[in-house]
């Protein structure tokens, strides 16, 4: 059983949903983002998504675009991202780590070499925004061989005819993109979420996490009542961004502010059901 599957099974036993925070690698610098990554499980993260900075994040809103720019400016590369995961794994063997990003940095690294190195570093799953199942042929096999889960995205536009194709090739969990739009913008209503879940449950037994537009503890709680997990990304990055000094460097406030917000989200998620 993979780390991701183990974690969702354990949470199910506890009768609660997963809180999945997101950080962008090397935002605003390598050491700060590694420190944040290491502190996240203690603040209530059940799984963690690490955004891999890309020059052209065409599915992301302004907050994550800026985070990616800071990360690249601070010297992020795929090698650095994997190094960061390996450092995290030195003292955390349990919290699943998922890399989220765009396909081209993986292509540049080489599909098979990337999967092998990522698995060795301690990565558990991949979310690749611009790789629909139809285009996954080059990555699927090396990912399976390396034991990495390919987490598929399902969107409100994914119709019933298409759902089995998307979910059939998924592993780990399903990432439900709750709105049509880029990250960090609108929030889906509970009615929209309630309407979406039965469609998903009908075609997959995998856990479902909801992402895009979840900012507040109340919204996170609503998401884990409707599904199995809540992804919070832009809201945390916004807090990080606000804590930086005028030159965009980390301050003594940076970690405490992000981690306090994460704890508040975690409390709400744990009290939700």
């Amino acid at each position: 059983m993979s780390r991701i599957a183990r974690r969702f099974a354990a949470l199910k036993e506890q009768g609660r949903g997963a809180l999945i925070p997101y950080l962008q690698a090397c935002d605003p610098d390598y050491d700060t983002s590694l420190a944040l990554l290491r502190a996240m499980p203690g603040a209530g993260a059940d799984l963690i998504e690490i955004g891999v900075p890309f020059s052209d994040p065409s599915a992301d809103g302004p907050t994550i675009q800026m985070a990616a720019r800071r990360g690249l400016k601070a010297g992020s590369s795929m090698v650095r991202v994997l190094e960061m995961v390996a450092r995290f794994r030195e003292d955390d063997a349990e919290t699943p780590i998922i890399l989220m990003g765009y396909l081209n940095p993986i292509e540049a690294y080489g599909h098979a070499r990337f999967c092998a190195d990522a698995a060795r570093a301690g990565v558990d799953g991949l979310i690749i925004v611009d790789m629909p199942p139809e285009e996954a042929d080059l990555l699927d096999r090396p990912a399976v061989e390396a034991g990495l889960d390919i987490i598929r995205l399902v969107a409100p536009t994914t119709d019933d005819a298409r759902l089995p194709l998307v979910c059939g090739s998924a592993s780990g969990f399903i990432y439900y993109v709750s709105i049509t739009g880029v990250t960090g913008t609108r929030t889906a209503s509970s009615d929209e979420l309630a309407a979406a879940m039965p469609r998903l449950r009908a075609v997959t037994d995998l856990p479902v996490a909801i992402g895009f537009g979840i900012r507040s503890p109340e919204q996170a709680a609503a998401a884990v009542r409707a599904a199995d997990g809540a992804v919070v990304a832009s809201a945390l990055i916004k807090t990080l961004e606000e804590s930086l000094d005028e030159e965009g460097r980390a301050t003594p406030d940076t970690l405490p502010r992000v981690l306090t917000q994460l704890s508040d989200l975690a409390k709400a998620v744990r009290a939700a059901r």
């Binding site: 065409s58 599915a59 396909l103 925004v129 611009d130 790789m131 629909p132 139809e134 285009e135 598929r152 995205l153 399902v154 969107a155 409100p156 536009t157 994914t158 119709d159 298409r162 998307v166 993109v177 049509t180 739009g181």
Partner: peptide, 8 residues
């Protein structure tokens, strides 16, 4: 190579 939202 597009996001799932755009695929349909």
């Amino acid at each position: 190579f597009v996001a799932e939202t755009l695929m349909p």
